[in-house]
Design a protein around this nucleic acid. Structure first.
Lengths: 231, 231
DNA sequence: CGTACTGTTGAAACTAATCAAGGTACGTGG
DNA sequence: CCACGTACCTTGATTAGTTTCAACAGTACG
């Protein structure tokens, strides 16, 4: 029995829609791997040697300047695809934010398999187009929004992305969630400094818009205010 | 005879690799269209009704906030693909920066054709992955670079992108080129104001790094300095 | 030759970064 | 289980970079 049969993201990841024979073939070239929080999976500018599906956990995609400034350029949640197929190098590092499980493939094996299975390539294309949309709307945030707007937008996005993942059968965005990011990482997502992030969080708390039960926990008390602030 | 036969981007656009029968079928669902500088082709948040290949000219992809702030999230050059296939809405407006010619398809027609032609979908996937890489490196610029670094990076990118397009059989980046952007549009690409862009241009000119023969013309005099400044 | 648009320059205001201490939570070992 | 050390976070004061506001100059065009 292939491990795909018991895969929790089987019906949401790009593997969805493959028949049992194809799943078996894909299973043959992939393997499960655990990544502990903070552990890297792919290095920036490395030869693109592997690609993967996220089964469980959250990972960050980052690029850095020589002098150490970091920008988080993407966040991968369960069922997301990571890595750079059909290209020689990966332009972003991938590091686990939480303990995570992924299904990894050698890039060459994956490329070959994908080219032989148009349905899988199509799924990958849809996913890449959606990611490009998301990335572009993040460019607007980075280039044109103020610090308060960035924070409000970030919290709203988090409440949506983390709700999708959750097992609770609730619909719509979550009003209470646990951030997979440290303050520094929030800063790296938004193009701010850690101090500015901290101050804006505190300000929203003092204004009664959010509660901060613990370092990583956020509760949205007044969603309307947050939407208004998001710009 | 189909107009594809005489298409100047025939071998670089996603149509490359299709056989003559397929080209004929694609030609049947597409049509040429001219767009004058400043004219919009697609509106933000519109139903995604059409997609297109750029034959000639340069177009900008933008997103805007309600209060009118604009961010250019992408620039399309000849052979680039524009529009949002396989999705209900387009998240960005597309407006011509120069007079342009495009080959447009109704999205439905294109989607159907693409699904029946894996080779075309593969080309589109490769293109989308490359665009995502470029977009992510632009996120680093927007989130973490200073105004001087942004300007330097921008000029270097321009010298590369515009060289590819040019008919001159020279290799490598162009040291002299004509910007397809006004100062305001440069500001919208970089997440700056028009005044800051102007000041940085002047500063580079005074330092002898570039020459500005006219409003739109740029000559790179000291490429090394520019690379150093790009951060 | 005047008008309108685009770009440049200067001064002031403001936002967010930087520099610098403290404080709080958390894990570890006593 | 509690004390301690460390990493993470918050807060305050100051500074720097960019925006904003305002006026002017250059260029294209009728």
């Amino acid at each position: 029995m292939s491990s795909c049969d018991t895969c929790v993201v089987r019906n949401r990841a790009i593997c969805a829609g493959l028949d049992s024979r194809e799943i078996h073939a894909l299973n043959a070239i992939g393997r499960r791997r655990s990544v502990t929080a903070g552990e890297p999976l792919i290095w920036e500018d490395d030869d693109s040697l592997l690609v993967a599906n996220v089964i469980d956990g959250v990972l960050k995609l980052t690029t850095s300047t020589e002098d150490g400034r970091e920008q988080i350029v993407g966040v991968a949640y369960p069922s997301d695809f990571i890595g750079r197929p059909f290209g020689p190098t990966s332009k972003a590092s991938v590091v686990a934010l939480t303990d995570a499980r992924v299904c990894v493939f050698s890039r060459n094996d994956f490329d070959r398999f994908a080219r032989e299975h148009p349905e899988l390539e199509h799924k990958l294309l849809e996913r890449t187009l959606a990611e490009l949309d998301r990335t572009r709307s993040w460019m607007m945030l980075l280039g044109r929004k103020t610090a308060p707007e960035k924070i409000a937008t970030f919290l709203l996005e988090m409440s949506e992305r983390l709700a999708e993942t959750g097992c609770t059968p609730s619909f719509g965005p979550a009003n209470r969630f646990s951030l997979p990011f440290s303050r520094q990482q929030v800063a790296d997502v938004l193009g701010l400094t850690i101090e500015t992030v901290s101050r804006q969080f505190t300000k929203l708390k003092n204004e009664g818009v959010i509660e901060l039960p613990s370092r990583r926990e956020v509760e949205i008390v007044n969603r309307g205010a947050l939407v208004a602030l998001a710009g």
